[in-house]
């Protein structure tokens, strides 16, 4: 039941409009791997680490600072559901 609900959520997300900011990501990252299909929790943690500077970066820190944790979570969840 839980697996089906999870798959349903992924399918919903895959079909859903990208949340704010998400569509801009493919300008640099493209619309396939590595961000499409990436684990959502890992991506959220990475983006939060870029934002705080815990993970050094060239541009990602400056970009991640434009979003709060919820927004970064939504972006990560959406990209995780893209194939």
């Amino acid at each position: 039941m839980r697996v089906e609900a999870g798959l349903g959520l992924v399918m919903l997300l895959a079909a859903a409009a990208p949340p704010p900011g998400a569509s801009s990501c493919s300008g640099c990252h493209g619309s396939a791997s590595p961000i499409a299909g990436h684990d959502a929790k890992q991506m959220t943690e990475a983006l939060i680490a870029f934002r705080s500077g815990a993970q050094p970066s060239t541009v990602m820190g400056r970009i991640a600072k434009g979003f709060d944790a919820d927004e970064l979570g939504a972006i990560s969840a959406w990209w995780a559901a893209q194939k």
Binding site: P20, G21, S24
Partner: peptide
């Protein structure tokens, strides 16, 4: 231009479905 193209496309698709377009965030690099 590429970022705006995607946001505008989403907004136009929404408008044509009679839905309210989402408030966007856009990135430039």
């Amino acid at each position: 231009a590429n970022a705006q193209g995607k946001v505008c496309a989403a907004a136009v698709a929404a408008l044509l479905r009679g839905e309210k377009p989402q408030e966007p965030r856009l990135i430039n690099t």
